[in-house]
Design a binder for these strands. Structure first.
Lengths: 160, 160
DNA sequence: CGAGAGCGTTTACAGTTGTAAACTTTAATT
DNA sequence: AATTAAAGTTTACAACTGTAAACGCTCTCG
């Protein structure tokens, strides 16, 4: 339905306030972000405008003022942003990345137990296919026709 | 030493080619990215220029042409980009995010075993502190002075 | 040695982002 | 009803991105 979610860093700061309080006035948000980032009311208002235009926030008229709410879910939104980043590397390398994340994330015993449980239930496959475009991953080095010509002695054909 | 790594999506496409082949000429890269994204030689050259200026790529003069290399490590670079995203949510919520990532990442048995091992070795703490700025996380709702003023009690909910 | 091929550099240009001032509309107060 | 304060809207503007054409230097081939 929605296009790819696209929330900038500054916009995310605003979203966090809305997510935290459920409903926020422009003033609420300004108070928080002025404290955290020193932003002026103008800045927050611009961000609110952009987020509303993008459809990520709804402005509802309250007795005196506008109240902003969102239909977006915070963890879901972050997941979407994560997808983009994770697609930057070969899917075969992602488990290693996960290992790193697990190592560096502080957690309590319950978290660890939960993750262990998830892992225990995890279905594995016989082989994870490399999803990279040839020439962007070493998985393809041994593949048949490598796109790259070995730049050595031969001169190059100029296509167009 | 280096500032926060900052590689845009388009630049990353170029980096991937260099990472994959170790050494690439502008032409190598153009070939790959023309195939994958339809980019012209000009586009690739611009990107190469920007990456070189940022210090992410080195241009070394070979016999006839330039060869680009990098000192950056691909997984490390991605980790750095990930940090930025992960700092968008409360550190207490990260384990749940990890659970999601584990679930959705296809892996082979060895990967799962490796992750299980990592988890087994994982040190846990008694409590994970909320690292959010007050007003940006519900962890702070019960904290003493809430920054946000409660806006009026009367609710106007015209939800559709 | 001159011409063309190849490659890096400069310039271009629209769209997004970060930050904010100025302007306008609306609602509360006197 | 006029004034004013608050909130939304418009305008601003530089930096960064995505995409690419034009320009210029150098190396190689004839």
């Amino acid at each position: 339905m929605s296009e790819t979610l696209n929330i900038s860093d500054a916009e995310w700061e605003v979203m966090r306030v809305v997510w935290a309080s459920g409903e926020s006035t422009s003033q609420d948000i300004t108070t928080v972000l002025n404290g955290k980032r020193g932003w002026s009311q103008s800045t927050v208002k611009t961000l609110l405008g952009r987020l509303t235009r993008k459809g990520y926030l709804q402005a509802r008229k309250n007795a005196r003022h506008f109240v902003y709410t969102t239909h977006l879910d915070e963890p879901d939104s972050l997941k979407q942003e994560l997808e983009g980043l994770l697609s930057r590397i070969c899917s075969r390398k992602i488990p290693n990345l996960l290992a790193y994340l697990i190592e560096k994330t502080p957690m309590i015993a319950k978290d660890r137990a939960m993750l262990e449980q998830v892992l225990r239930n995890k279905q594995v496959v016989a082989e994870v296919p490399c999803d990279c475009y040839p020439g962007q991953c070493t998985c393809h080095l041994h593949a048949s026709g490598t796109i790259l010509s070995q730049h050595s002695n031969e001169e190059i054909s100029h296509e167009n």
